[in-house]
Amino acid sequence: MLRGLAGDGAAHGEMLSSMSRYLRGYFSRRLGAGAADLEDLVQDTLLAIHLKREAYDPAQPFTPWAYAVARYKLIDHFRRTGARPTSPLEDAGELFAVETAEEGAVRRDLSKLLGTLPERQRQVMIDVKLTGHTVEEAAQRSGMSISAVKVSIHRGLKALAKRVSDEDR
């Protein structure tokens, strides 16, 4: 986390991906394994850890901070969905036939969300995300400067986070 705060992208990515494993465990213990919203919550929380990293105090241990974010997202989720999900006994069969929540089988279609972004933002996000170009390549393809690409991605992420939370309201 500390190296990520200093601007080291690789370290930041490592931190996020190890957090994603912990978070998946944390949420699945509380929602039940294979819950449909599991991966959404993991993504929401990772996005919050990323966008709100200024609110982390380096003098404090990181893990409690990250779990406080996760807990906030979980409570928010319960509030939106009306407390814990319950289902009548007759439908209990469905509970066992839960789709195998393969990682990434997300209810919310983020590619559709991506479609709502302005063209420039979407294009660089797709370049960097889907086709695995580096930022430099994406910059060349779109004719923007490298820092403009980074700014686009940053704004795109923020806009996505906002859309996601608007959609859930």
């Binding site: 930041h12 990434g104 930022v135 980074k150 991605i153 992420l157």
Partner: peptide
């Protein structure tokens, strides 16, 4: 979007932040 892709996306854009930002 898969979580790994989201992570990759977020780690392409890591502006440094300083400790006293909140204050």
């Amino acid at each position: 979007m898969k979580t790994d892709e989201l992570i990759a996306l977020m780690s392409t854009d890591v502006a440094p932040v300083s400790a006293g930002a909140v204050g």
